[in-house]
């Protein structure tokens, strides 16, 4: 099969970060993600801190599979899509579980993308794919650097395409990322990742 991105099948998880202007892109990605996508996907999206309900439902409408807001210490399931809950940081914990935290805001955000990305990089190391989308501050830039340092694969949404490009640009300024892609290309990449991971698990 034609391989544009030369994706390895070694990956074990995907993290996605986004803020202002990312909702449409996220929706598109979730709609196109194969139903049997084999990796867990952890999404940290900036959201209203004190609105607990509604967001995960809105994301689930078009998604190919349901999006869940995990409980603290919930076991990670293959192929599950997780969304950081309102007013909690979401981290990846050792022992295949998710942990939540009410620690200080980072980059004016809780959940903070850096928090999820950094802990995911620590646990999954070179088996992590990090994707950073449109947004209005620098959250995620540090997290992308950590993913890169641990040997993971880093993808930033093309600032040209991003509704608000501060977040992609901040990451690009800090880290030599592996790929700069438009949302449609990110989807192509994820389809290739899907095939590569399924192949390697045969």
């Amino acid at each position: 099969m034609f391989s544009r991105y030369k994706v390895s099948g070694k990956y074990r998880a995907v993290v996605i970060g986004g803020s202002a202007g990312s909702f449409q892109g996220i929706n598109k990605i979730l709609a196109e993600l194969p139903k049997e996508f084999p990796l867990p996907v952890f999404m940290c999206l900036h959201r209203l801190k004190h609105v607990r309900n509604g967001f995960v439902e809105a994301l689930s409408i078009k998604s190919s599979k349901p999006v869940v807001e995990p409980y603290d210490k919930e076991t990670i399931k293959r192929g599950q899509i997780y969304l950081a809950p309102a007013n909690y940081h979401m981290s990846i914990e050792l022992g295949n579980s998710i942990a939540l935290s009410t620690e200080e805001m980072e980059n004016n955000s809780r959940p903070a993308i850096d928090y999820t990305f950094e802990t995911a990089a620590y646990v999954f190391r070179d088996k992590l794919v990090g994707i950073l989308l449109s947004g209005a501050n620098k959250d995620g830039a540090y997290g992308m650097m950590r993913i890169k340092q641990k040997g993971g694969l880093t993808i930033v949404q093309d600032p040209e395409e991003s509704a608000i490009n501060a977040m992609p640009n901040a990451a690009l300024a800090q880290t030599k990322v592996d790929m700069i892609l438009k949302v449609d290309q990110i989807i192509e990449f994820l389809l290739e990742l899907d095939r590569a991971c399924k192949m390697s698990q045969l």
Binding site: K73, S91, L94, Y115
Partner: peptide, 9 residues
Amino acid sequence: YAMSSFRRR
């Protein structure tokens, strides 16, 4: 203590 938050603290 939970490892990820404790390590960050």
